[in-house]
């Protein structure tokens, strides 16, 4: 096994570094500026059954060491994703890359439909984004109530033939109870964290900067919260974890692995520097070399 190789629910990744969903398009857009073949996995933007229009603009706002977004999961629907995005990732996949498709839904039924549609496609894993609002049940995110979270995972797991990653929202009082619930529901892997709800106000205009008022905070500003949650969850579940939230350097990524993550994802950092993912992979490799580490998993959960 090479130094950076890791395994997530039986799926081998050549290194533990992947983009965070929604910050990397579907990968092919990035080929112009970087070598995507170096990535352990590619995670596509959230996809729903039918196209979603997304929110009005402004959809992003910069914050101190971070950003807010309220894109509203704009996407062209599952058929477009299969026709264009998944197809364009096949060369990457044939050369040993792992393709992960991120799923969005407004109802449990919608998640199920998307998962069923994807079963026969050339992808490796699915990632369930349970931060979406549960439209039929008042609009709170699926991932904010342990029993709802468990139910949606259980239902999707019944139809899904690929290993299922469940991505948690940090906007909860007790992340551990949610993590345990999705593990009980059958999650093969847990990823965390999604964005933290926040806001910014333009004091001259006396109005919120984002058209939707509130948005999801990401970037280095959230890293300490993410790291704490990854550690708490790692202490309480057996399934492997993908840690993310504010990673911009190799050192950040190593912190997450030491906290108990098997792999890491990088989102906002790529907006600042298109080379961020590659720099992180190189940096982890060098760090391991300098510390005589044969495989990166030797430091997993060491704190």
């Amino acid at each position: 096994m090479s130094r950076l190789e890791v395994s997530l629910a039986g799926v081998k990744l050549r290194n533990p570094v992947m983009p965070a969903s929604g910050t990397f398009g579907s990968g092919y857009e990035m080929s112009e500026v970087m070598n995507i073949h170096r990535l352990g996995a590619v995670v596509t933007k959230g996809v729903s059954m039918e196209p979603w229009l997304g929110n009005p603009t402004p959809r992003v706002a910069e914050t101190t060491s971070g950003m807010l977004n309220s894109i509203g999961l704009q996407n062209s629907g599952i058929e477009e994703l299969i026709k264009i995005d998944i197809k364009s990732l096949q060369e990457y996949r044939q050369k040993g890359g792992v393709v992960i498709v991120n799923l969005a839904g407004h109802t449990i039924q919608e998640y199920i439909q998307v998962a069923e549609r994807l079963n026969s496609e050339s992808i490796d894993m699915m990632e369930l984004n349970i931060s979406c609002p549960n439209v039929k049940e008042g609009g709170a995110a699926f991932g904010t109530d342990p029993s709802v979270a468990e139910k949606v995972v259980r239902e999707v797991k019944k139809v899904c033939t690929k290993p299922l990653i469940v991505k948690l929202t940090p906007n909860v009082t007790d992340i551990v109870s949610i993590a345990k619930a999705v593990e009980a529901g059958g999650a093969d892997v847990i990823s965390l964290i999604n964005t933290l709800m926040g806001a910014r106000i333009d004091i001259e205009k006396r109005q919120f900067v984002l058209a939707k008022k509130y948005g999801g905070l990401s970037g280095p500003a959230i890293k300490p919260v993410a790291l704490r949650m990854v550690h708490q969850v790692a202490q309480n579940v057996k399934v492997p974890i993908i840690g993310l939230g504010g990673i911009i350097t190799a050192e950040d990524a190593i912190e997450f692995i030491m906290a108990g993550a098997t792999a890491v994802a990088v989102g906002t950092a790529t907006f600042n520097n298109v080379n961020a993912l590659e720099n992180i992979i190189d940096g982890i490799n060098t760090w391991c070399e300098n510390h005589n580490i044969g495989n990166i998993m030797e430091i997993k959960g060491v704190v």
Binding site: T23, F24, G25, E29, K45, P58, R59, I71, T270, V274
Partner: peptide, 17 residues
């Protein structure tokens, strides 16, 4: 003009009109 996230890679969908 619109607010941008990825700055033209087309990956973030911030900047729509």
């Amino acid at each position: 003009e619109e607010r941008m996230g990825c700055g033209g890679l087309g990956t973030c969908l911030s900047c729509v009109c």
